[in-house]
Design a protein around this nucleic acid. Sequence first.
DNA 1: CACGCTCCTACAATCGATTGCGACAAGACT
DNA 2: AGTCTTGTCGCAATCGATTGTAGGAGCGTG
Lengths: 339, 339
Amino acid sequence: MPRLRDVAIRSDVSVSTASRALTRPDMVASETVERVKRAAKELGYQPNLLARSLRTRVTRLIGLLVSDILNPFHATLAKGLQDAAFDHGYSLLLCNTDEDPDKELTYLRLFRTHQLRGFVVVPTENSAGLLSAIGELPVVEADRTSGLPGFHAVLADNQEGTEAAISHLIAFGHRRVAIIAGKLSITSGSERLSAYLGAMERAGLPVDPGWIVHGDHREQGGYLAARALLSLPPERQPSAWFVINNEMTAGAVRAILEAGLQIPRDLSLIGFDDSRWAQLMHPPLTVIEQSPYDMGYTAGKILFDLFERGPTPPGVLRLATRLLERASVAAPAPAQLGS
Amino acid sequence: MPRLRDVAIRSDVSVSTASRALTRPDMVASETVERVKRAAKELGYQPNLLARSLRTRVTRLIGLLVSDILNPFHATLAKGLQDAAFDHGYSLLLCNTDEDPDKELTYLRLFRTHQLRGFVVVPTENSAGLLSAIGELPVVEADRTSGLPGFHAVLADNQEGTEAAISHLIAFGHRRVAIIAGKLSITSGSERLSAYLGAMERAGLPVDPGWIVHGDHREQGGYLAARALLSLPPERQPSAWFVINNEMTAGAVRAILEAGLQIPRDLSLIGFDDSRWAQLMHPPLTVIEQSPYDMGYTAGKILFDLFERGPTPPGVLRLATRLLERASVAAPAPAQLGS
DNA sequence: CACGCTCCTACAATCGATTGCGACAAGACT
DNA sequence: AGTCTTGTCGCAATCGATTGTAGGAGCGTG
């Protein structure tokens, strides 16, 4: 690989002039710039970013830390961030933690050793303890917050979305609405649960404690939570479920199908976050749509802003949600109305 | 951030000894090693990989170039590669090209400027011309090959998979089997098409030219191809479709539902590559399952092998496929048997 | 005691860029 | 003619690590 020195020799200038000709052309005579550029092109010169970054103390690398890129929500977020990175001339280091604190710590360290400029993280339960250790690196949290002060965050408007979901169910006549909730230590989980409780209370509807089950945000967790709901005695059965994320919704659907129930005849269902399978399943699933792509793109923009303008007072940005009415919600069967 | 110099001063040795104590402890008195390590820990020292890589001329970065990380196939492949990278102490740069040759070229250049050690690519039509330009960088192709000689590749056993699909349909009594094929310039597409033709011929079944439609490997392409099939005159209608990738299968399903047809009553369907929606849709889709995770992991292993052992004669590794029988294939209705 | 040997350690060069500063020439101005 | 600008360009230091080589300490041996 040709070095800057080769370009300099070929265009008969010093290395410093060659450097300036390529990066700050206004400081060099235009005729010289031309000569240097031509030489660079002829040699196929590509600057060594390691050397440049070492000298300037600035890289053009950012990171993304998610628990699982297989979750379409994360994949879409990754794409949004990647596009933002591309638009700003940055490259993206992708890291899956699999919810493993050791991996998470390893990656966080890696971010520092690789001299990343900053990163975006979808925090997990363990993140809070770890993030406080990384120090001065600019960070933007997406989807959830670790609860730590000082971080910028881009989140969905969980309250608005949840309320829309519950209102939708109530409008169909449901009075017995269950929730497959998540971990309280994860903000998206706790916010959606409390919005559910608020919406039910405002509607004057009692909530059976058995209607609140907690999953681990993964498919299997949703499945187990659904089984718990299905095993409630008949007189306590809810007529509709609200599931707080897409993975658990998939698990819940699996459990429902296994139990031989039909949606929405026997049970109405509404999920948080859209996905292809939600559109294609039978019946198509009514969901609260979020914008993971925008979330990623926006998180990126905030990050780049941070790079340019320096530290900013941290703020939380809420992205709107939207009710996508499809066919998994219907009026409850008379027998289900209960007391 | 503390530098090695700080560690050296604190442990009262020279920078070079500090360096050796941390990276080649056998060359330094164990008592000194101890002292240096302690100092490093106390200071929270993290080596600057830019400087190290600049000096050693070797980074621990690899890249992944895919057209679209939103495709679960690519996402899963990415995860496999990421896990392989983690296991070998490498980090992964993720790049989406969106099938845009400009982006692809930009990223390829980026790989060189970032001094990546090598990369994995799922080639597109444009890749062939570009890959030849990147020179000496180790590359492993996944899922498809660009057709260029000299590259290692990890592919699905397209012939085996396609034959299993067609045999399955034939075993159910289908004689009129259509294919939604891809671009011939993409090997996975051409291989699956020719395997289809071979299987039909060996079964002694004629193929109506109208039964072969080409899509662009994306959802919309599958939709359009499906519309083309559905608009064939009744006497030329196939009783079963084989779709060569998951995105186009989704589009095809959309078109079928729009047309008010029922699977498998009116039409049997079998897709290549499994996905969650294929499991959850109604009816669950019979598919040829591939192992994108293994593909990514294996591609990574080949790449790391290349790093360690130096250039190897390029080879093509085929990963087995498996027929996942679900419920989208049934015997054709008598009226469909045709002539 | 001189010599050679083995261990350790330090000095200094090096990777490939960027950049502060000074040198120099050409032109403007007094 | 002398001085001052202005515009270009080169020298050399620098970023933070790694590593070839040389030198010194400690020890055993003849």
